[in-house]
Amino acid sequence: MTRKEWLDDDAGPVVRPFALIGGRARSSGDDLDLIALITTTGANPRDRADISPEQAHILELAAETSSVADIASDLNLALGVVRVLLGDLQDQGLVRVRPPAQVAPLPSARILKEVINGLRAL
């Protein structure tokens, strides 16, 4: 199952986002930061039927840690939809979320120096 069966680059998602997330307005994923990092916990879904194809794709991407924005971009879905899908995965214990404040309350001087050198070397 490739994403091409589900998504059409030109026409946008074939499945209407509203349908993807069951028309819900609120979700535990609503406040996920754009650069919050998502990693799979390694747990298996209790029932494969609970997982939509988009969520299965998210689990693949998050196997190696991915940000919310990267996931939205890779799935070609709008951020709000991705947040809902991620919230559900988090509720099911399938992904771990690290908000930026937890990742780097204030990035350390060491990290910033690394970024400066990295940018210069681009």
């Binding site: 754009l34 650069i35 990092l37 840690t65 940000s67 690290r98 930026p100 990742v103 780097a104 990035p107 990290i111 970024v115």
Partner: peptide
């Protein structure tokens, strides 16, 4: 060792 993401 955890991945770090920064935003500009």
């Amino acid at each position: 060792d955890e991945p770090v993401a920064l935003k500009i």
